[in-house]
Every structure is written in C-alpha cells, then in structure tokens.
C-alpha cells in the first residue's frame, strides 16, 4: 500500500509538472468546446438534448484522454530502462500498476472537473438538474477509468510507446463497435457481444441521459478491474523473459 502511494504521488507529480499534460488538457477542452458549440448547441436547443449531446461529446473526450494518458504509463519506463529499477525494488507488480493507474485516473478526474463549466452554462440557461450533471460525470469518470485500464494493459504488453498506443486504440475501437457486431448475431452470443460494448450499451442509454444503472457501474468497474489484472499478469509474465 505504501509503495502504491509513493508511485501514485510520483506519477501524479510528474503529470502536474509536465507541460504535456497541461497542453493535452487544454487541447481536449478545446476539442470539447468546439464540438459543444458546433454540435451540442446546433439545431434543436432544448436543454436536456443539449446536455445529452454534451455528454455524448465528452464520452469521446474521456476515452481519448484515457488513451493518451495511459499508453505511456509502463512502456515509457520500459523504453527508458527505468522499469528495471522498479522491478528490482521491493515493489510488487500490482503496486506499480495500481499506483500508475490511480495517478492517471486522478489527472483524468481533474480534466473532467475542468470541463464542468459547459454543463453549468446549460443549467443556468436551461432546465436540467444538478443530479443529471453529476450522473453524467460519474459515467464519464467510469468510461475514462475503463479506458485507462485498457491503456495500462496495452502499455504493460508493449515495449514501445507507439505500439502500446496502437494496441490500446485497437482494443478500444473493438469495444466501441461491439454493438454493431452484436447486431449481426443471434441468441446468447448477440447478448454477450452487445453487452461488451464500451459505450452504446452502457453509456448512451443511461449516464448520457441522467439515468444511473447499477449494471452499468458494475460493467465499467469490472472492465477496469479485468484490464488492470491483465496488466499485472502481463508484467509478471514479462519478468520471465
């Protein structure tokens, strides 16, 4: 636990000190702002619809942020040969993975909090509830968490940051189109495949609309746990090399 805390603080400090993280944050906010103006505030401007569109946009932003923040987590250490220091210190792989993941998750949460002014603008001028905004942000946090876990796994798997990025992108894209695959299937396989969709099954019909579903929360937590477990096991396997 202590080791996790140390890694967490070191990683979070690195994020906050790094211009990359701030440039990334500003860029993602800019992208969110552009889409907010061009898509959410276009056409029919009923406040609930604008908020739904906003969360639709932000879900994409959260996924992109999760991907960009995570792909370097472990592969960078490996590329710069500093992972060997971690491996030879009395720290377990679980502690390394969890510490790095939590730091990235904290930074992602900060990024999401920074975007709160957009739904607040809708709230001031429209007819939406604070709880609706809160539920949307819980969803964004969970989607971001799952994406970060996927990125962490890809980062543990690949020796190179670029490959890690590509691997996590491929996994995320696959999980984003599961609903389309599932629609072509029948029976139980259809249900299972559709249930694996990262967004259309678990975010769009619920968090995006201000509906809190226990099943969706559990899905994202399960995804996060599973990919972090995969990351840990991959790290362990890599030690055998």
């Amino acid at each position: 636990m202590r080791a996790t805390r140390i890694i967490y603080r070191r990683e979070l400090g690195a994020y906050l000190r790094s211009p990359f993280a701030w440039v990334l944050s500003a860029l993602l906010l800019l992208v969110a702002g552009v889409f907010f103006q061009a898509y959410a505030l276009a056409g029919d401007m009923l406040s609930a619809i604008v908020l739904e569109r906003y969360f639709f946009i932000m879900c994409g932003v959260a996924i992109a942020a999760g991907l960009l923040l995570s792909f370097r987590l472990i592969s960078e250490e490996r590329q710069t040969h500093s992972l060997i220091l971690l491996n030879t210190s009395p720290i377990r792989d679980t502690e390394i993975v969890v510490g790095k993941f939590l730091a990235a998750l904290t930074f992602l949460a900060i990024l999401l909090v920074l975007s709160i002014y957009m739904p607040l603008l809708i709230k001031v001028n429209g007819k939406i509830t604070s709880a609706q905004i809160l539920v949307g942000y819980i969803g964004l946090f969970l989607v971001g968490s799952a994406t970060l876990a996927i990125g962490t796994f890809a980062s543990a798997l690949a020796n190179n940051q670029l490959i890690a990025g590509v691997v996590s992108l491929v996994i995320i894209i696959l999980l984003l189109v599961m609903n389309l695959f599932g629609a072509k299937l029948d029976g139980v396989v259809r249900t299972v495949v559709m249930d694996l969709d990262l967004r259309r099954t678990h975010f769009d019909p619920s968090f995006q609309r201000g509906i809190l579903n226990l099943k969706d929360i559990i899905f994202y937590l399960a995804m996060t746990y599973f990919f972090l477990l995969l990351a840990v096991k991959t790290m362990e396997a890599k030690r055998w090399q």
């Binding site: 939406i128 709880a131 539920v135 609309r209 226990l214 099943k215």
Partner: peptide
Amino acid sequence: KERNAQRDVSY
C-alpha cells in the same frame, strides 16, 4: 443486469 437497480435523475 438481471437485478438492476435504476435511478432516473434526468429532468
């Protein structure tokens, strides 16, 4: 999924 609990806080 089977025993889902739902809370709708939309407007």
